[in-house]
Write a protein that binds this DNA or RNA. Structure first.
Lengths: 331, 331
DNA sequence: CTGTTAGCGCATTCAG
DNA sequence: CTGAATGCGCTAACAG
C-alpha cells in the first residue's frame, strides 16, 4: 500500500540504507545519488513511517497533554500555547481530558506511555498523585502545569494561588463585605486548596471569622457553579459577596444570580479567577485574577522538551508566576 | 530500559510468543501459563509498546484532529466531544490548530500521516482543499467537520449555514433594520461564504439592496472582530445592526461597541453564530444561532471510527444539521 | 561512497 | 497447547 524506502531503493537501484541516508541527509553519500533518491521519493509520494522510525530511535516527537476540560477557556488557552510551542520544535500533542477524575488520569497516563510519548504535560487532579510520583520514580520526563504534588520535587509551572485568592478576597473586604462565600474548586487539587487558603488568609487578616457553611467545594463545571451559588443564595443569612474558583465556574454563578433577579455588585459582589477571554464582556465585567496562559504553556513546553532532548540545564524547574488582580465592575 | 515481552518470556520460562498470546488473550493457551505470564507481567510493570504493535497491526488507535483554533469555544466544545467519543472507543487524538492557514493545514496533514494516525477529523480551511482531495483520492479515512470542500463527495458533519445566517439576519430585518453590517468569516472557508449567502438572501428577500461596503471579510480572532466593528462604526452612514461570523468574533465587536460608548441593541443591534457557553452571559445576552457541538463531534467521530474499523454501512455520510435561532436581547 | 547485516518490540504464520 | 521463524519500516554498525 504505502510506499517505503524499499520501494524507492528498488526504483533507484540502490540499497534501502542509501535511501535512508539520502532522506535524512546523514552519513556520506554522493550528491548525485542523493538527488536521484530524493527525486524518486518525491515522484512516488513517499511519506516516512514514524512508527518504524520511533521504534529504533526511541523518539516519537509527540508529547501527551492532560487537562481537566479543554472547554474551560483557561485550559484552552494553555493548550493552544502548548500546541504552538510544541509544533515550533517539531512535536505534536495528544490531548486528553481528565474531567478531574483520578482514575481517568491514571488510565490516560498509562495509555500515553503505551503510545510512547516522549514526555508529559500534566495538570494533576490530586495532590497526592501516586501516579505522578511513580513517573518521577522511573524518571519519565514530565512537567506539571498549574498544580503541584505535595512534597514532590519535580518540574512545574504554576501561579501563586494563595496570593491570587488573597488579593481577590481582600478586594471584596475592602469594599465592606464581611460575609463572603467561596465557590471552591475540588479539595484534592492543589489550586483548589491554595485558593481556599488565600480566602481564609484574607478573612483572618481582617478579623472576619471563618464560616464553614459559606464554602462549597468541588466546583469545576458551569453547572457546579450554578448549583453552588443557588445554595449560597438560599441561605438565611446569605453572603453579600462570593469568590469563585474560576471564571468558567463564575458563569454558572452568574446564571443563578440572574435567575434570582439579583444585581451585581449591589445585591451580591463577585470575583473570579483566571481572567479569560469573556470575563471583560460579561453582563457585569468580572473582577478576577489574571494568569498569563501563553507564558505558562510556553514555559512548560520548553522545559519539557529541553529535558526530553537532554538540553536541560540541570536541576528542577519550579516556576511560580505572580498573579495579578484585575479590577472590573463585579465588585 | 523498558520491560518487553522478551523479559517476561525469560522470567516465565516460556517463549515470547506465548507471552504475546497471554497478554492479548488470543490463540490457544492453557489457563495456567496464562495466569503465570500475566502475573509476571504485572510484577515487572510491563507496558506494551504501541509503536511495535502498530508497525505490524497497521493500526495506531489514534486519530488526528485539526481545528482553526481550539480557544474558540465552538471548536473547544467539538474537540471535547471528539475526545470523549474517541476514548470511549479506545482512540486518542492528536490535536492541531491550523490558524486557518492553508499551508499549515497541508503540513499538519502530512505530519499526521507520518505518525500513522488511523484517520483524520478535519475542519478544512479552504473550499478548494487540494490536500483534502488528495486524501480522498488515496482513500485515506477522514471526516470533515463544520465545513465542506466544493464538489467533493465525501463524509462530513456540518450545519446548514445558509439557513442559520438567513434566520439571524431576518431577525434583524424584522426588528426594522435596513442597514446591516456583516463581520464575515474568511471567504475561502465554506462556512464563511455560506453565512454570507444567508445574509444576502435575507436582504434580497426583503428588498434591501446589497451594499458591499457593509461586509468585512476574514474575521476569525477576537481582535479581527474588534477591528472590523470599528471600521463599521466609523462609516458615515453606519449600520444600525451587525451579524458576526461567530460568537467568538462578536466578543471583539462588543469591545469596539463598548469603546465607542454605544448601546446594544438601541445604537447597534448584534447577532452572532454558534451559541457558545458565554453568549447568554454577555453585557447584553447575545442573540445567536445554535449548533449542537456535542452531537457534531460525536457523530463525526463515530462515522470516522466505523470507517476505520470497516464497520461503515457503506456510502458517504453527509450530515447536515439544522441550526436554530436563539433570540436573546442583543437584537 | 555504498551495500550487507542486524535489531527495535511485537504479532502472525507454521511446525511440532 | 507451545516454540521457532519471519517480517512490519527503518536506522545503525560494520564491511567493502
Amino acid at each position: 500500500l504505502r510506499v517505503t524506502i524499499k520501494d524507492i531503493a528498488k526504483k533507484a537501484d540502490v540499497s534501502a540504507n542509501t535511501v535512508s541516508r539520502a532522506l535524512n541527509d546523514r552519513g556520506e553519500i554522493s550528491e548525485e545519488t542523493k538527488q536521484k533518491v530524493l527525486r524518486i521519493a518525491k515522484e512516488l509520494g513517499y511519506i516516512p513511517n514514524s512508527l518504524a522510525r520511533g521504534l529504533v530511535s526511541r523518539r516519537t516527537k509527540t508529547i501527551g497533554v492532560t487537562v481537566g476540560d479543554n472547554r474551560n477557556p483557561y485550559f484552552a488557552g494553555i493548550v493552544k500555547a502548548i500546541e504552538d510551542a510544541a509544533r515550533e520544535r517539531g512535536y505534536n500533542i495528544i490531548l486528553c481530558n481528565t474531567d478531574e477524575d483520578y482514575d481517568k488520569e491514571k488510565e490516560i497516563i498509562r495509555l500515553l506511555r503505551e503510545k510512547m510519548v516522549d514526555g508529559l504535560l500534566i495538570t494533576p487532579v490530586d495532590r497526592k498523585g501516586e501516579d505522578i510520583r511513580e513517573l518521577r520514580r522511573i524518571n519519565f520526563p514530565f512537567v506539571l502545569i498549574s498544580r503541584y504534588i505535595d512534597g514532590l520535587k519535580t518540574d512545574y509551572v504554576v501561579n501563586d494561588n494563595v496570593t491570587g485568592a488573597y488579593l481577590a478576597v481582600k478586594c471584596l473586604i475592602e469594599k465592606g463585605h464581611r460575609r463572603i462565600g467561596h465557590i471552591a474548586g475540588p479539595s484534592p487539587i492543589s489550586a483548589g486548596t491554595d485558593r481556599f487558603k488565600g480566602y481564609e488568609k484574607a478573612l483572618d487578616e481582617s478579623g472576619i471569622e471563618y464560616d464553614e457553611s459559606l464554602v462549597i467545594w468541588n466546583n469545576v463545571k458551569i453547572e457546579d457553579g450554578q448549583r453552588s451559588m443557588e445554595e449560597l443564595l438560599k441561605m438565611d443569612d446569605r453572603p453579600t459577596a462570593a469568590f469563585t474558583f474560576s471564571d468558567y465556574v463564575a458563569l454558572g454563578a452568574l446564571r443563578a444570580i440572574h435567575d434570582a433577579k439579583l444585581k451585581i455588585p449591589d445585591d451580591i459582589a463577585l470575583v473570579g479567577y483566571d481572567d479569560v477571554e469573556f470575563s471583560p464582556f460579561l453582563e457585569v465585567p468580572l473582577t478576577t485574577v489574571h494568569q498569563p496562559r501563553v507564558r505558562i504553556g510556553e514555559m512548560a513546553t520548553e522545559i519539557l522538551i529541553d529535558k526530553i532532548e537532554g538540553k536541560s540545564s540541570g536541576g528542577t524547574h519550579q516556576v511560580i508566576l505572580q498573579p495579578e488582580l484585575v479590577i472590573r465592575s463585579s465588585c
